[in-house]
Simulated assay, not measured.
Amino acid sequence: MEFKRTAIADVILMQPTVFGDDRGYFLESFHQQKFNDFIGSEVSFVQDNESKSSKGVLRGLHFQAPPHAQGKLVRVIKGSVLDVALDIRKSSPTYGQHVSFILSEENKTQAFIPEGFAHGFVTLEDHTIFQYKCTNWYHPSSEGSILWNDPALNIQWEETKPILSEKDQSGVLLANFNSPFA
Score class of each variant (00 low, 15 high):
Ile39Met: 02
Ile39Val: 09
Gly20Trp: 02
Asp10Thr: 13
Glu42Gln: 11
Gly20Leu: 06
Thr17Arg: 14
Glu50Thr: 10
Leu13His: 03
Ser44Phe: 10
Glu42Gly: 01
Asp22Lys: 12
Asn49Phe: 05
Asp48Ala: 13
Gly24Asn: 02
Phe26Ile: 11
Ser41Glu: 15
Glu50Leu: 14
Asn49Cys: 08
Thr17Asp: 15
Asp10Pro: 07
Phe30Asp: 02
Val43Cys: 01
Leu27Met: 15
Phe26Cys: 06
Pro16Val: 04
Val11Pro: 01
Val43Leu: 12
Ser29Tyr: 08
His31Thr: 02
Asp21Phe: 09
Gln33Lys: 14
Asp37Val: 04
Ile12Gly: 03
Ser29Val: 08
Val11Ser: 10
Tyr25Ala: 13
Phe19Cys: 06
Phe26Asn: 06
Glu50Arg: 11
Val18Ala: 01
Phe45Arg: 01
Val43Pro: 00
Ser41Asn: 11
Ile39His: 03
Val11Glu: 13
Gly24Arg: 02
Asp48Glu: 15
His31Ser: 06
Asn36Ser: 05
Val43Asp: 01
Ser44Arg: 15
Arg23Val: 09
Asp22His: 15
Asp21Gln: 09
His31Pro: 00
Gln15Ala: 10
Glu42Thr: 12
Phe38Pro: 01
Asp48Thr: 15
Glu28Asp: 08
Asp21Cys: 09
Phe19Ser: 11
Asp22Pro: 02
Glu42Ser: 12
Phe19Gln: 04
Ser44His: 12
Asn36Val: 05
Gly24Tyr: 04
Glu28Phe: 05
Asp48Tyr: 08
Phe35His: 00
Phe45Leu: 04
Tyr25Pro: 06
Leu27Asn: 14
Gln33Arg: 10
Ser51Leu: 07
Asp37Ala: 12
Asp22Cys: 11
Val43Asn: 02
Phe35Val: 00
Phe38Arg: 00
Phe38Leu: 00
Phe30Ile: 05
Glu28Met: 08
Phe38Asn: 00
Ser44Ala: 11
Ala9Lys: 15
Gly20Pro: 04
Leu13Ile: 13
